[in-house]
Amino acid sequence: MRIYEELFIVKPDAPEEEVDQFIEQMKSVVSSSGGSVDKVDKWGKRRLAYRVDKYREGAYVLFQFNAAPETVKEFERRLRVSDMVIKFLTVRIDQTLKRLEKRKRDRDKRAHRKATAPGPAPAQPSMAQQMLGEPAAAE
């Protein structure tokens, strides 16, 4: 299972309820094949940076889901077939999320060490050192 992000653009003149229906359909595509939809976000209408299929604006929809690679294939196939969707982008994000989490963890650790460094932090390691080193030094 991998985490994916799917951003697609729906035609601006598509009726709202049809779009919602389509979103529900896509949700079931993911869940029926054993995946789980984490997030669905409708950004609403936005101006496109360039013309796509004669449209100058489009409604963005963002999906975030956890699924197997085959599911993505099916998902993309459906997006291609649908005449509402004019453009889509699939991004695999689990590795990125992992990397970000690690960075955050490292940063927190560093901040924690920095915060405790002037005070008790040096004392604690030296406690352990004392246990080991002091008998030898004392004798």
């Binding site: 653009i9 936005r46 940076a49 796509v52 889509f88 982008l89």
Partner: peptide, 13 residues
């Protein structure tokens, strides 16, 4: 480049 692909940013403005 990803943003360009999904028409969030222009290829050539």
């Amino acid at each position: 480049k990803k943003a360009r692909n999904i028409a969030l940013l222009p290829f050539a403005a």
